[in-house]
Design a binder for these strands. Structure first.
Length: 159
DNA sequence: GCCAACGTTGGC
DNA sequence: GCCAACGTTGGC
């Protein structure tokens, strides 16, 4: 079994916030609606059960707000074939799915959000994808070091 | 509200 | 295959 990997998942909190995740049964929810091929590949092929991901709120108060753990690996995203869903994409069908999702469970909510502006000043994050100009990818890999630096800065270093 | 960066679309 | 136009993301 390969070592755990680390990721970052972006969400606009008015759409789906870390608080919303905390109120789901078993604090678990499919991470659906991703419609970018690079992000799709990370969801489908990269993320494995046990991997952890930083939960990032985009928008008015951009910040890392907590940690989730992958509890189910990539499987087809059914919201793509629901015409009523705003992420509907007729190119994807149950027989030939285009879009994928994973299930994530909330592991930790940071005592306080760690704002994007603060991340920019933290040593060790100089090469983080999130901080690169023009980086819009909503599912990103994060190095183990970056993950640890962020979690410890958030006041949540774990054994 | 602005705008830079990026991804997608479609004409050629 | 190229590339201009367009729509979206997302920080500021």
């Amino acid at each position: 079994m390969r070592a755990e990997r680390y990721w970052l998942l972006k969400s606009e909190p008015s759409e789906f916030s870390i608080d919303d995740l905390g109120h789901r049964p078993d604090r678990t929810e499919p991470w659906d609606g991703v419609r970018n091929y690079q992000a799709r590949s990370f969801l489908r092929d990269g993320m494995k059960v046990g991997d952890r991901a930083l939960f990032y709120h985009s928008g008015k108060a951009p910040a890392v707000v907590g940690v989730v753990v992958v509890v189910r690996e990539g499987y087809p995203d059914p919201s793509a074939w629901d015409p009523m869903n705003r992420h509907f994409d007729p190119r994807s069908t149950p027989d030939a799915p285009v879009w994928y999702m994973v299930d994530v469970r909330l592991e930790d909510v940071f005592p306080a959000p760690l704002p994007l502006a603060e991340l920019r000043g933290i040593p060790g994050l100089e090469n983080m994808m999130l901080l690169r100009k023009g980086s819009r990818l909503s599912v990103q890999p994060v190095s183990e070091k970056e993950f640890q630096v962020i979690v410890s800065r958030a006041g949540m270093a774990r054994p």
